[in-house]
Amino acid sequence: MTFAIAHLFPELLGTYGDRGNVDLLAWRLHQREISHEIIEVSVSQKVPTSADLYLLGGGEDDAQIAAMEILNRKAILRKVLSGGGHIFAVCAGFQILGESFPASGGRTVSGLDLLPMETLSVGPRSVGEVLLEPTFSSTPGSLLTGFENHSGQTRFTDVLLPLGRTLRGVGNGLQTGIDGVVTPQIVGTYMHGPALVRNPELADWILERKIGNLEPLSAPIFEQLHNERVAASR
C-alpha cells in the first residue's frame, strides 16, 4: 500500500511555509522506507477523495474563501471523511472546517461545517511563538512549539477536544487557553508552517493515527530544533 498525502491548493493555502509540513511527513516516511506519494492538488485540478491524509495550510482572506468555495462545491471533505481519510489543517485551513469565519470588510463567511466551531474577528492580530501542552501525548513533560500569525479567534460551539493547552501564545483565543482541535480524523491548529518540523512527536502521531505504529526514527536535528524552540518560548 502507498500512503497518499494530498496537499490541497498550495498556491492558495501556503502563505506560511506550509509545504514544510508536507515535505517533512514525506521525509519521515521515506526514512522508514514506507511507500508514499504526495499529490499536489492545484485549484484547476480535481481533488482526489481517496488519499490517506489531506493537508490544508494558511492563507490570506481571499485565498481562504477561494479554497473554501472549491471544497464546498461537491462536499469533497465530507466524502474524504466518510471514506476514512484524515485531515491536518492549519490556521486558515483550520478555520474553514468550522461553521463560519470572518473576511475583510466585516463580512462573515460560511465554512464547511465539518466541526462545531466558529471563528470571530478579534483584534489585535495574534503573532508570535506558541507553546502547548498537548492533549494526545502520554509522554510526561511533552510540549509542542510553533509560530502563529492570525487575526481570527475560534470558539467551539459544542464539545470538542483541543490539540493542547496554551502555555504561551493565543491559539484559539477568546480566553479559552487552548489551541486547535483533535477528532478521530481531524487535527487542526493555529501553529502554522513547519509545525510538524518543530514537533517530530506530533508528526509521527498524525501518521500513526492512520497507519499504525511506526519504528522510532533517530534524527537529532529535529530534536535539537524542538528543544531550542521550547527553551526559547519559556
Partner: peptide, 9 residues
C-alpha cells in the same frame, strides 16, 4: 522577521 517558516518556501 521572527518567523522562519519562509525557509520552507
Amino acid at each position: 522577521g521572527k518567523d522562519t517558516s519562509w525557509l520552507w518556501d
